[in-house]
Structure formats: structure tokens, C-alpha cells
Simulated assay, not measured.
Amino acid sequence: MAFATYIVGQTPFPEFSVILMLDDVQILYYDSVTWGAFHRSQSNSKYQNEEKIDAGAVFHEIYNGMKDQALYIKKHLNHTDGIHVHQRVSGCELLNNDKPGLIQTWDAFDGQNVGKTIFDIEKHDVQTKLTWMPWDQLKKTSNEILRRYLNLEKNNMRKVKPRVRFMRNPLTDSQRLQISCLATGFYPRHINLTLFRDGQPVDDDQITGGEILPNGDGTYQMRKSLVISEEELREGHKYNCTMKHLSLDNKLDITFDVSECDPGSFGLSIIIGVLVFMCVAVLIITALIIWRKRQAAGKCSVLFCSVQFITSNTQLEKETKHQFL
């Protein structure tokens, strides 16, 4: 646990100080007088200097955050000038099974609770409650600014509608099927693309892809894929892909009916493809053999004619010579 204190106003104490605790043992102290971290016990770690530097960087970041927040909290709580104390307790835990637990932070201003944050590391879940933040005013101001800039720039904003395709790809190593929803050629880059199974969103841990990637023409694309098991194919679920984009008046919805697919046909199609490939290969090899035989036969015919011609000439010479004598 880190116990941090930031003091608004002049006092004989440091403006900012932190005490670091390991369970109930104080192990480190830091303040804004020296801007340094000091161990309260002897440390034999060879990384002691690095630990002090790292701790100093973290605590200085906490100091900046608490200093900025103190100004907002003081204004929100309508406190007058004078001495005020902003306190923060931050801690993390390691469970008995050596797994990380929660990271928690509590804030108080002049003894009044003003905020709490709980972060569950394993679930990646954050819960925040800030009593000092003027949410209504912040929401109103933000919306007004956003609307004003949209009105100024809406005629200059480029909008390109996405082209959408639903693709299927039988996996050759099994009876499974991969379906993919591809949206491409859209601008601006923000798009909301969701895969549904029987009307319910598919869990993110079952989906691959989802990154927004640039195209060469300045537009963007996004692809989300899902592998469907052989059992799911037999059950005949219905899948659809929906997307929302700034260029669309209504959301796009494309449906893919798995019940139209025969799981056995994937393996049959692969077998047919292999047989066709083998037949084509046999035809090519046969054609090459026939061509070579014809080439060889042609060479033999030429050689045979040459031998005949030479033999005939020799016989003619002998007959001519006999008649002359």
C-alpha cells in the first residue's frame, strides 16, 4: 500500500509525501523536499539504485496527478483558500495461489471521501466512482463542443460506404468451417462490426481479427472471423453480421445460414478436388510420354532413310563400274 499526502497551502511539512507499506511493514519513504526514495530498512538488493529511480518516477507521477485533482476538488467542494489536505491510498495484492488480485485506490479531501477505483487484473474490469467530478456539467460542455465542431465541419467530412462480404472457408484438417465478415473501403475509420449467432452476439474470445487496417486508397477495412465446429454445423445455427458506420443511414445486416451447409460435403469436396488434380496430372504425364515416343520415332525414321540412301548409292556405283569395264 502507498499512503500519499498532498498539502495545499503553506505548512512546515513537505508539500507531498508517500509511505510505502508491505502488509504492516514500512519499507520506503518519499517526499517533495529531496524528491528521493529512501528505504527504511537495510536492503541487500543489487538493484537498489534502480528501485529508487523507478519508485521516484512513479511517485512523481502520483504527485502531479494529486496536485491537478486538488484544484478541481477544492473548486467543486467550494472550499476557500487556506490549508487543505488531499490523501490517497493505493494498493495491490498477491493472492496465496501466486495470482494477482485487485488494484485499489481511495481518495479523500479534507477527510471527505471523493473517489474510489477498483481494477480486477484477471477480469480486466475497472470500477470508478468520483464524487468530486461534475459529470453533468462535463457532459453538457463536451456535447456542446462536439456539436459545434460537427456543424462547422460536416460539409467537409469525407464519407465512404463500406463494401461488405460474408465468406466461408472449409478447414482442410477437419470438418470445421470458418466464416468471415469483411467490411472494406470505408471512411472515416471508426466502424462497429458485430457477429451474431441466433440473434446473440458471439463472445470476443471466439472471434479472430477485428483490427482496423488501412487500404492503399486512404480507406479502411475490418475483418472478423469465427470457426464453427462440426457439431455446430449439424445444429444449423444462423449467423449474421451487422455494422454501423457514419456513412450509413441504417445498419447493414448480412445473414449466413449454416443449415444450408452439409458438413460431409466439405470432406467430399476435398476428395473430389484431389481426384481431379490426380487425373489432370496423369493426362499431362501420358501426353509427355507420347510426345517423347513420337520424337524418338521421327529420329529413327530419318536415320533409316539415310542408311537406305547410302546403301542405294553404293550399289549404283558398283553397277556403273561393272558396266564401264
Rank of each mutant, 00 (worst) to 15 (best):
G267Y: 04
A281L: 10
L268V: 07
V280E: 02
I285Q: 11
I270V: 14
I272D: 08
V302W: 08
I289R: 06
P263M: 01
V274Q: 14
D257S: 03
F277C: 14
C261Q: 15
C305V: 05
F266H: 12
D257L: 05
I270L: 14
G298H: 05
I254Q: 10
L268D: 11
S259I: 01
S306M: 02
L283N: 11
F304N: 14
K299C: 05
I270S: 13
G267E: 14
S259E: 04
D253I: 07
R294S: 15
V258N: 01
S269W: 03
L252N: 05
R294M: 14
V276C: 01
G273V: 02
L283I: 13
D257N: 06
W291T: 04
V280G: 08
V282K: 02
E260D: 11
V258H: 00
E260T: 13
T255S: 00
I285H: 08
A296K: 07
I272C: 02
K293N: 12
C261Y: 12
F277G: 13
A296Y: 06
V280P: 00
L303K: 08
A297P: 01
L288G: 03
L268Q: 05
C261G: 09
I272S: 04
D253C: 02
M278T: 04
D253S: 12
F266N: 03
S259T: 06
K299E: 08
F304H: 11
A297N: 13
V307R: 07
T286P: 02
C300T: 15
G264A: 03
L275C: 10
G267W: 02
V302I: 15
S269L: 09
I254V: 09
V307G: 02
A287P: 01
I290T: 11
C279D: 12
C261A: 15
V307N: 01
C279I: 08
L283Y: 14
I285S: 10
F266P: 00
F266T: 04
L252M: 06
G264V: 04
F266R: 04
S265T: 03
K299S: 10
S269H: 02
V280C: 01
G264F: 00
V276A: 03
G264R: 05
D257P: 00
G298A: 07
A281T: 09
I271V: 15
D262L: 00
A297T: 07
T286K: 05
G267R: 07
S269G: 13
G264W: 00
